[in-house]
């Protein structure tokens, strides 16, 4: 029996079946107050110790049931992620959330003075880091993308089953592109999302011709650029370009 690759529902690039883009006349900002509530609960999660970093938060959304992921709205997905993280951190219990759902909101407004109003200032800290390693690639280098597998320290059945957080989309896996920019070192999402430390890695902008990604199905004259961490890349300078 061949093992079917685990579907990562959030990894949407290049997939079929989602139809036309529904262009909404969406005004700037939040369309509904509850969207802002979810947004604020996300921000508060950092201070409460429930959300460790943006990779940790993104991974909570990626763990949502695949069917729900596509049927839910953006803030519905955020809500699912935020609830999970508060529960996992022990700040809230699932029981509390379930019970409170049945209770109307009346009378719960507390004095704003009880909560510090300085939180806008602690906007997310930068994920850029100083490099103490030499970059493996230069602008102009040909590279082939690869899945580095589970980071050291995480127990998994096998690398094919690895469902952890990563920022290499499936559609750009095992493809050849050219490095067009180098951005220094950044916190590595594949470890940071799982509490395995920042392990900063060099980040490159890699440009792929559309036909290198999709073959004959590609539209003419199209390139796609992705920002990829060094562990996702291996040298392809000795490979022929046309696949």
């Amino acid at each position: 029996m061949t093992r079917e690759r685990v579907k990562r529902m959030h990894d949407l690039g290049g997939q079929d079946g989602f139809g036309r883009v529904e262009i909404d006349e969406n005004p700037a900002g939040f369309a509904e107050r509850w969207h802002a509530v979810v947004f604020s609960a996300m921000r508060a999660g950092y201070k409460a110790g429930a959300i460790h970093n943006s990779d940790h938060f993104r991974h909570s959304i990626e763990r949502i049931d695949p069917e729900r992921y596509v049927s839910d709205t953006y803030y519905g997905r955020w809500l699912g992620g935020v609830e999970s993280l508060y529960v996992e951190a022990g700040v809230l219990t699932r029981k509390e959330l379930m019970e409170r759902c049945a209770v109307p909101m009346a009378g719960l407004r507390v004095d704003p003075a009880l909560v510090g109003d300085d939180w806008h200032r602690d906007d997310r800290a930068t994920a850029a880091r100083d490099s103490n390693t030499k970059a493996a690639f230069d602008v102009g280098d040909m590279v082939r993308t690869r899945r580095p597998g589970p980071p050291h320290g995480l127990v998994q059945d096998s690398s094919e089953d690895w469902r952890g957080h990563t920022r290499l989309p499936e559609y750009a896996l095992d493809k050849i592109g050219v490095v067009i920019d180098r951005h220094g070192s950044w916190v590595y999402p594949d470890t940071s999302a799982h509490g395995l430390g920042e392990q900063p890695q060099w980040l490159y902008s890699v440009c792929f011709a559309s036909d290198a990604l999709y073959g004959e199905a590609a539209e003419p004259g199209v390139e796609v650029v992705l920002d990829l961490f060094e562990p996702y890349l291996q040298s392809a300078s000795t490979e022929t370009v046309d696949e």
Partner: peptide
Amino acid sequence: ARLRAEALESLL
């Protein structure tokens, strides 16, 4: 979703 968001809000 709105009711769940409000439940989360009131608990926080």
